[in-house]
């Protein structure tokens, strides 16, 4: 699972009002290189919740993103785009769990695939 996906996912359990961001328990993190596309990054920038991305990257062992929400003028910086690209698309949670911020319920992640299936009493 990419951090791009993590930044979009939220806990869907019945009664949970604030399911974002999901906590991350990282047992195995892998990196895969992907071609960078600046247009995609510029398009995504406004949709990304910055703090959760910074926090998720840190848990996954990557601390090079600026702490504070950058001004969109950084999108002209190649150096920034590289980091943003790396965090969003190249770091994968391979084994571990996502944790509902409100209930603590864990969604296991195996072979890179988070299991977001709800139990009957959570629907």
């Amino acid at each position: 699972m990419k951090l791009l996906t993590h930044n979009m996912l939220s806990s869907n359990i019945k009664g949970v009002t604030n399911g974002f961001p999901l906590g991350i328990e990282a047992e195995k993190v892998i990196e895969r290189s992907v071609d960078m596309n600046p247009d995609f990054l510029k398009n995504m920038f406004s949709k990304i919740e910055w703090k959760p991305l910074v926090e998720a990257s840190r848990i996954m062992g990557y601390s090079d993103l600026p702490e504070d929400v950058p001004d969109s003028s950084v999108l002209d910086s190649e150096e920034f785009l590289r980091k943003f690209h790396h965090a969003l698309l190249e770091i994968h949670l391979e084994e571990g769990a996502l944790v509902c911020p409100q209930t603590g319920r864990k969604f296991p992640v195996n072979k890179g695939i988070p299991n977001m299936l709800l139990h009957e009493d959570e629907v």
Partner: peptide, 10 residues
């Protein structure tokens, strides 16, 4: 993602 669309997309 392993999920059931009938449970809603989170």
């Amino acid at each position: 993602i392993l999920g059931d669309m009938g449970q809603g997309l989170g």
